[in-house]
Design a protein around this nucleic acid. Structure first.
Length: 255
DNA sequence: ATGGTCGGCAACCGA
Protein backbone atom coordinates (compact mmCIF):
# COMPACT_ATOMS: atom_id res chain seq x y z
CA UNK A 1 0.00 0.00 0.00
CA UNK A 2 1.38 3.33 -1.15
CA UNK A 3 0.36 6.46 0.72
CA UNK A 4 1.31 9.99 -0.30
CA UNK A 5 0.85 13.52 1.00
CA UNK A 6 1.08 16.80 -0.86
CA UNK A 7 0.31 20.39 0.06
CA UNK A 8 -0.99 21.57 -3.33
CA UNK A 9 -1.52 25.26 -2.61
CA UNK A 10 -4.74 25.39 -4.67
CA UNK A 11 -6.24 22.21 -6.05
CA UNK A 12 -7.69 23.94 -9.09
CA UNK A 13 -4.41 25.52 -10.18
CA UNK A 14 -2.58 22.23 -9.59
CA UNK A 15 -5.32 20.06 -11.09
CA UNK A 16 -3.28 18.85 -14.07
CA UNK A 17 -0.22 18.36 -11.87
CA UNK A 18 -2.25 16.13 -9.55
CA UNK A 19 -3.71 14.14 -12.46
CA UNK A 20 -0.26 13.56 -13.93
CA UNK A 21 1.17 12.72 -10.55
CA UNK A 22 -1.48 10.10 -9.81
CA UNK A 23 -0.79 8.46 -13.16
CA UNK A 24 2.95 8.42 -12.61
CA UNK A 25 3.14 7.34 -8.96
CA UNK A 26 -0.10 5.36 -8.70
CA UNK A 27 -0.48 5.66 -4.92
CA UNK A 28 -3.30 3.84 -3.19
CA UNK A 29 -3.97 6.99 -1.19
CA UNK A 30 -3.11 10.63 -1.81
CA UNK A 31 -3.73 13.17 0.95
CA UNK A 32 -3.90 16.83 -0.07
CA UNK A 33 -3.76 20.04 1.93
CA UNK A 34 -4.46 23.67 1.13
CA UNK A 35 -6.94 22.80 -1.58
CA UNK A 36 -8.37 26.33 -1.35
CA UNK A 37 -11.63 25.32 -2.97
CA UNK A 38 -15.17 25.35 -1.62
CA UNK A 39 -16.98 22.03 -1.79
CA UNK A 40 -19.48 23.32 -4.36
CA UNK A 41 -16.58 24.24 -6.68
CA UNK A 42 -14.57 21.02 -6.29
CA UNK A 43 -13.64 19.88 -9.84
CA UNK A 44 -15.08 16.40 -9.39
CA UNK A 45 -15.55 15.87 -13.14
CA UNK A 46 -11.83 16.28 -13.79
CA UNK A 47 -11.08 13.40 -11.44
CA UNK A 48 -14.05 11.21 -12.30
CA UNK A 49 -12.19 8.88 -14.68
CA UNK A 50 -8.98 8.48 -12.72
CA UNK A 51 -10.01 5.33 -10.90
CA UNK A 52 -9.81 7.22 -7.63
CA UNK A 53 -12.57 8.02 -5.19
CA UNK A 54 -12.23 11.26 -3.31
CA UNK A 55 -13.48 13.00 -0.22
CA UNK A 56 -12.86 16.63 0.58
CA UNK A 57 -13.66 19.58 2.78
CA UNK A 58 -12.84 23.11 1.73
CA UNK A 59 -13.70 26.71 2.36
CA UNK A 60 -13.37 30.01 0.57
CA UNK A 61 -9.77 31.14 -0.06
CA UNK A 62 -7.93 29.25 2.67
CA UNK A 63 -7.16 25.79 3.99
CA UNK A 64 -8.99 22.73 2.71
CA UNK A 65 -8.13 19.02 2.78
CA UNK A 66 -8.91 16.08 0.53
CA UNK A 67 -8.15 12.37 0.21
CA UNK A 68 -7.96 10.43 -3.04
CA UNK A 69 -8.14 6.64 -2.79
CA UNK A 70 -8.16 3.63 -5.10
CA UNK A 71 -10.15 1.81 -2.43
CA UNK A 72 -13.44 2.42 -0.67
CA UNK A 73 -13.70 4.92 2.17
CA UNK A 74 -15.14 3.91 5.50
CA UNK A 75 -15.63 5.81 8.77
CA UNK A 76 -15.23 9.26 7.21
CA UNK A 77 -14.89 12.17 9.60
CA UNK A 78 -14.33 15.87 8.97
CA UNK A 79 -12.79 17.95 11.75
CA UNK A 80 -12.43 17.23 15.44
CA UNK A 81 -15.09 15.47 17.46
CA UNK A 82 -15.92 18.51 19.57
CA UNK A 83 -15.85 21.11 16.82
CA UNK A 84 -16.66 19.55 13.47
CA UNK A 85 -17.00 23.01 11.92
CA UNK A 86 -13.60 24.20 12.99
CA UNK A 87 -12.08 24.90 9.61
CA UNK A 88 -11.21 22.30 7.01
CA UNK A 89 -7.93 21.12 8.47
CA UNK A 90 -8.65 17.49 9.32
CA UNK A 91 -10.18 14.69 7.31
CA UNK A 92 -10.16 11.08 8.39
CA UNK A 93 -11.21 7.83 6.76
CA UNK A 94 -10.53 4.13 7.03
CA UNK A 95 -9.12 2.65 3.82
CA UNK A 96 -8.68 -1.10 3.88
CA UNK A 97 -7.28 -1.87 7.31
CA UNK A 98 -5.65 1.52 7.70
CA UNK A 99 -7.03 4.63 9.37
CA UNK A 100 -5.85 7.72 7.51
CA UNK A 101 -5.79 11.04 9.33
CA UNK A 102 -4.92 13.90 7.00
CA UNK A 103 -4.12 17.21 8.69
CA UNK A 104 -3.25 20.74 7.66
CA UNK A 105 -1.87 22.27 10.82
CA UNK A 106 -2.22 26.04 11.37
CA UNK A 107 0.96 27.89 10.42
CA UNK A 108 0.96 30.12 13.51
CA UNK A 109 2.03 33.45 11.99
CA UNK A 110 4.37 34.80 14.74
CA UNK A 111 5.37 33.83 18.29
CA UNK A 112 3.29 35.43 21.03
CA UNK A 113 0.21 35.86 18.88
CA UNK A 114 -3.24 34.32 19.16
CA UNK A 115 -2.60 32.51 15.91
CA UNK A 116 0.43 30.78 17.41
CA UNK A 117 -1.56 29.80 20.51
CA UNK A 118 -4.20 28.40 18.19
CA UNK A 119 -1.52 26.29 16.51
CA UNK A 120 -0.26 24.92 19.84
CA UNK A 121 -3.83 24.21 20.95
CA UNK A 122 -4.46 22.42 17.69
CA UNK A 123 -1.79 19.84 18.50
CA UNK A 124 -3.33 19.32 21.94
CA UNK A 125 -6.71 18.73 20.39
CA UNK A 126 -5.17 16.36 17.88
CA UNK A 127 -3.63 14.27 20.67
CA UNK A 128 -7.06 14.08 22.31
CA UNK A 129 -8.59 13.16 18.97
CA UNK A 130 -6.27 10.17 18.69
CA UNK A 131 -6.94 9.13 22.29
CA UNK A 132 -10.70 9.40 21.88
CA UNK A 133 -10.87 7.50 18.60
CA UNK A 134 -7.99 5.02 18.55
CA UNK A 135 -5.50 2.86 20.40
CA UNK A 136 -1.75 2.98 19.69
CA UNK A 137 -2.04 -0.64 18.57
CA UNK A 138 -4.39 0.35 15.74
CA UNK A 139 -3.10 0.79 12.20
CA UNK A 140 -3.07 4.58 11.83
CA UNK A 141 -1.43 6.97 9.41
CA UNK A 142 -1.14 10.55 10.55
CA UNK A 143 0.00 12.63 7.62
CA UNK A 144 -0.04 16.11 6.18
CA UNK A 145 1.56 19.52 6.35
CA UNK A 146 2.53 19.95 9.99
CA UNK A 147 4.00 23.41 9.52
CA UNK A 148 6.89 22.34 11.74
CA UNK A 149 10.43 21.07 11.48
CA UNK A 150 11.56 18.95 14.42
CA UNK A 151 15.36 18.87 14.26
CA UNK A 152 18.26 21.06 13.14
CA UNK A 153 18.82 18.82 10.16
CA UNK A 154 15.24 19.45 9.00
CA UNK A 155 15.90 23.11 8.12
CA UNK A 156 18.49 24.89 5.99
CA UNK A 157 19.44 27.44 8.66
CA UNK A 158 18.85 26.04 12.16
CA UNK A 159 20.52 28.99 13.89
CA UNK A 160 18.81 31.75 11.93
CA UNK A 161 15.40 30.08 11.98
CA UNK A 162 15.41 29.13 15.68
CA UNK A 163 12.33 30.69 17.25
CA UNK A 164 10.26 30.69 14.05
CA UNK A 165 6.73 29.42 14.68
CA UNK A 166 7.59 26.39 12.54
CA UNK A 167 10.91 25.75 14.28
CA UNK A 168 10.85 26.41 18.03
CA UNK A 169 10.72 24.50 21.30
CA UNK A 170 7.03 25.15 21.95
CA UNK A 171 6.03 23.76 18.56
CA UNK A 172 8.41 20.80 18.80
CA UNK A 173 7.06 19.95 22.25
CA UNK A 174 3.46 20.20 21.05
CA UNK A 175 4.17 17.82 18.18
CA UNK A 176 6.16 15.44 20.34
CA UNK A 177 3.10 15.09 22.56
CA UNK A 178 1.12 13.87 19.55
CA UNK A 179 3.95 11.57 18.46
CA UNK A 180 4.01 10.12 21.99
CA UNK A 181 0.58 8.67 21.36
CA UNK A 182 2.58 6.05 19.51
CA UNK A 183 3.73 7.36 16.15
CA UNK A 184 6.89 6.75 14.11
CA UNK A 185 8.22 9.18 11.48
CA UNK A 186 8.40 6.84 8.48
CA UNK A 187 10.76 9.10 6.55
CA UNK A 188 13.36 9.07 9.32
CA UNK A 189 12.90 5.34 9.64
CA UNK A 190 14.60 5.01 6.27
CA UNK A 191 16.68 8.16 5.88
CA UNK A 192 18.91 9.94 8.41
CA UNK A 193 20.55 12.41 6.03
CA UNK A 194 20.25 16.15 6.75
CA UNK A 195 18.99 18.51 4.06
CA UNK A 196 15.99 16.41 3.07
CA UNK A 197 13.24 18.98 2.56
CA UNK A 198 9.62 19.00 1.43
CA UNK A 199 9.08 22.77 1.36
CA UNK A 200 10.88 25.76 -0.16
CA UNK A 201 9.62 29.28 0.38
CA UNK A 202 9.07 30.75 -3.07
CA UNK A 203 9.56 34.22 -1.68
CA UNK A 204 13.23 33.30 -1.40
CA UNK A 205 13.49 31.90 -4.90
CA UNK A 206 15.75 34.75 -6.05
CA UNK A 207 18.29 33.52 -3.52
CA UNK A 208 20.35 30.49 -4.39
CA UNK A 209 20.60 27.08 -2.83
CA UNK A 210 18.48 24.43 -1.23
CA UNK A 211 16.75 26.70 1.29
CA UNK A 212 14.17 24.23 2.43
CA UNK A 213 12.32 22.86 5.40
CA UNK A 214 10.98 19.40 6.16
CA UNK A 215 7.38 20.23 7.05
CA UNK A 216 5.42 17.30 5.58
CA UNK A 217 5.25 13.93 7.27
CA UNK A 218 3.85 10.45 7.16
CA UNK A 219 3.63 9.12 10.69
CA UNK A 220 2.54 5.55 11.35
CA UNK A 221 1.67 3.77 14.56
CA UNK A 222 4.21 1.13 15.53
CA UNK A 223 2.45 -1.97 14.16
CA UNK A 224 2.13 -0.19 10.82
CA UNK A 225 5.62 1.34 10.87
CA UNK A 226 6.99 -2.21 11.12
CA UNK A 227 5.52 -2.79 7.68
CA UNK A 228 6.92 0.40 6.15
CA UNK A 229 9.20 -0.51 3.25
CA UNK A 230 10.15 2.98 2.13
CA UNK A 231 9.41 6.65 2.51
CA UNK A 232 10.72 9.06 -0.09
CA UNK A 233 10.44 12.70 -1.02
CA UNK A 234 9.42 13.29 -4.64
CA UNK A 235 12.77 13.78 -6.36
CA UNK A 236 11.31 15.92 -9.10
CA UNK A 237 10.07 18.87 -7.08
CA UNK A 238 10.86 21.49 -9.73
CA UNK A 239 9.91 19.71 -12.90
CA UNK A 240 6.17 19.34 -12.71
CA UNK A 241 4.94 22.68 -13.93
CA UNK A 242 4.31 23.92 -10.46
CA UNK A 243 5.26 26.22 -8.57
CA UNK A 244 3.81 24.76 -5.52
CA UNK A 245 6.15 25.34 -2.64
CA UNK A 246 5.72 21.83 -1.25
CA UNK A 247 6.65 18.54 -2.84
CA UNK A 248 4.97 15.15 -2.36
CA UNK A 249 6.11 12.58 0.16
CA UNK A 250 5.38 8.90 -0.46
CA UNK A 251 5.48 5.93 1.92
CA UNK A 252 5.02 2.30 1.00
CA UNK A 253 3.71 -0.39 3.36
CA UNK A 254 3.77 -4.14 3.02
CA UNK A 255 0.08 -4.61 3.73
C1' DA B 1 20.77 43.75 -1.43
C1' DT B 2 16.76 43.79 5.20
C1' DG B 3 13.80 42.61 -0.41
C1' DG B 4 11.30 39.00 -2.72
C1' DT B 5 6.03 35.64 -4.78
C1' DC B 6 2.10 33.17 -5.17
C1' DG B 7 -3.21 32.02 -4.85
C1' DG B 8 -7.74 33.46 -3.97
C1' DC B 9 -10.42 36.89 -5.14
C1' DA B 10 -11.59 41.39 -5.71
C1' DA B 11 -8.82 44.78 -1.02
C1' DC B 12 -5.89 42.52 1.22
C1' DC B 13 -4.96 37.99 3.87
C1' DG B 14 -2.25 33.98 4.49
C1' DA B 15 1.96 31.42 3.66
Amino acid sequence: MKIATFNVNSLRVRQQVILNWLKEYKPDVLCLQETKVQDKDFPADAFADTGYEFIFKGQKSYNGVAIFSKHKFKDIQIGFDDEPNDGPRLIKAKIGKVNIVNTYIPQGYMPETDKFQYKLQWFKRLRKFFEDNFKPSDLIIWTGDLNAAMEDKDVHDPIGLKGHVCFCDETTKAIQNVIDFGFVDTFRLHNQEPGQYTFWDYRLRTLSGNQGWRLDYIYATKPLAKKCISCIIDKKPRTMNRPSDHTPLIAEFDI
